[in-house]
Design a protein around this nucleic acid. Structure first.
Length: 432
RNA sequence: UCCAGCGUAGCUCAAUGGUAGAGCCCCCGGCUGUUAACCGGGUUGUUGUAGGUUCGAGCCCUACCGCUGGAGCCA
């Protein structure tokens, strides 16, 4: 597409030529007879230098009157300049004010998280937030790219659902033409159906959890990528996950160095990430926790301190698998060597960022599934379609779901998950 | 839901139970290489709300509201 102006990220191709940049004034410094205008356009930041001798009086005063975040169109020749962080500067010869902003709330000084979240619609313009969401975009592209390279097809799962996918978690309820409906908390069961149609599939879907969780790792609306593959075993499922995570980390390291630098992310841990990841059983993980001084009984699920103890023992992500049947979902395939545990795994990220992926081989035997549903008191009628998948050409299959915001938090090194999504929905918080 | 901490100017924060303060923002002036620019001057308050103790409460007590972090649960 041919546009009548130039994006800052392309400015290096225009040295010596006069260009127009359309964007916003990020910051301004002035020295009486020279204005330094920090311009941003979403693709980058460049300094525009307006000297009194280079422009007429009206333009110079207009430059001096500019306020933070005013929208502007700036024209001038591009120069290489060793003093500029990006290596380039714009000598401003023309200035058009699109809109003069008044009293922009986010000043160049410190602000608390409550104030910033209240102004999230504006905070997104700040360099750190901008960098995070660019990394997020790269992560999502890497996931799509890896899966397509492996022959996976994107088959979106629905968001409005008639029933709970996993009965345990609290769901948001809504009204569907007079009938109750629920916002989906996972697309997994639906893509088990599309996997039987296409072989290898995935869905990029928001997931909703109406839990009263209030921590730096929880959102009520989050994005998940669920993948499902017919005939995949538990081991092949884990291979797929680790290859995908390596592809994601690799793409971010290759394409987002500027953003990672803005975020002051120490990339040393990320550079170490290579397949294969460590694999330990739930039983080994319990022993590890107890040795590390974080007591836990066999049969209990891991809490935050256990996550930290487990992940902290390894310098790359670690799979924990073969959890006791009792603490996992009804559809997970029991281990044929020990039916008291399931062929399911959680993948823990490094540096204490916790679980980012959960996956398992699914039960494909009709009678076994029906028995497990009964044990877990899962009603038959709403899941009749799901049981049908075991009735008509059932095959062994496996899949996993990755939490996008937790992955973004981990790769960006964030303190809080709320910065990993443009508009975070958290416990009792829905503005803006 | 439970536990802990915090609510003072638009923002970030000070203030032994004894006159309500600073920096930033904003406005005015100065400065041709600034990098959260700098220098001089100026405006800014029902101290979250309602009670209570006290000669006197921003400070102590009670309740409520809000915010932040954590727990449980999970990705």
């Amino acid at each position: 597409m041919k546009l009548g102006w130039t994006y800052i990220e392309d400015i290096g191709q225009h040295v010596g030529r006069t260009v127009t940049v359309k964007g916003w004034l990020y910051a301004k410094r002035s020295s009486g007879k020279i204005h330094f205008l920090q311009l941003r356009d979403g693709t980058g930041v460049i300094q525009g230098v307006m000297a009194r001798n280079d422009v007429d009086e009206t333009t110079f005063e207009l430059g001096g009157s500019l306020t933070q975040e005013s929208s502007v169109e700036v024209t001038g020749p591009v120069r290489e300049d060793s003093r500029a962080p990006s290596g380039y500067e714009l000598t401003v010869t023309g200035l058009k004010v699109v809109q003069l902003a008044k009293d922009y709330p986010i000043t160049p000084k410190e602000h608390g998280p409550a104030f910033l979240m209240e102004h999230r619609h504006l905070w997104l313009r700040s360099s750190k937030q901008h960098a995070i969401l660019r990394v997020r975009d790269t992560i999502e592209q890497a996931i799509h790219g890896y899966l397509h390279s492996q022959g996976f097809i994107h088959t979106p799962a629905p968001i409005l659902t008639p029933t709970a996918c996993e009965g345990t978690t609290t769901l948001f309820q809504t009204d569907y033409f007079g009938e109750p409906a629920f916002l989906s908390q996972s697309g997994q069961m639906y893509i088990e159906a599309t996997a039987a149609a296409f072989g290898k599939v995935y869905t990029f879907t928001p997931a909703f959890r109406a839990e009263k969780s209030k921590t730096r790792r929880h959102l009520t609306e989050l994005w998940m990528m669920d993948a499902e593959a017919s005939y995949f075993t538990h081991e092949e499922n884990m291979q797929c996950q680790e290859e995908m995570v390596c592809a994601v980390v690799g793409k971010v390291l290759a394409e987002c160095q500027t953003e990672l630098k803005t975020l002051e992310r120490d990339t040393a841990m990320l550079e170490k990430i290579r397949a294969p990841f460590h694999r330990i059983s739930y039983k080994q993980a319990v022993e590890l926790c107890n040795k590390a001084g974080v007591p836990i009984e066999y049969g209990e699920d891991f809490g935050a301190p256990h996550d930290t103890a487990i992940a902290g023992s390894f310098d790359r992500p670690v799979f924990v698998d073969r959890f006791p049947t009792t603490i996992k979902s009804f559809y997970m395939q029991p281990d044929p060597r020990d039916p008291s545990v399931v062929l399911g795994s959680d993948l823990y990220a490094t540096e204490g960022y916790g679980e980012i992926i959960g996956g398992s081989e699914r039960i494909h035997d009709l009678d076994l599934l029906l028995r497990k549903m009964e044990e877990h008191q899962v009603p038959y009628e709403p899941y009749k379609w799901y049981v049908d998948l075991r009735r008509y050409g059932s095959v062994p299959h496996a899949g996993f779901g990755i939490g996008i915001e937790r992955t973004v938090s981990w790769i960006c090194g964030l303190q809080h998950i709320r910065e990993a999504i443009p508009f975070a929905r958290m416990l009792e918080k829905i503005y803006p």
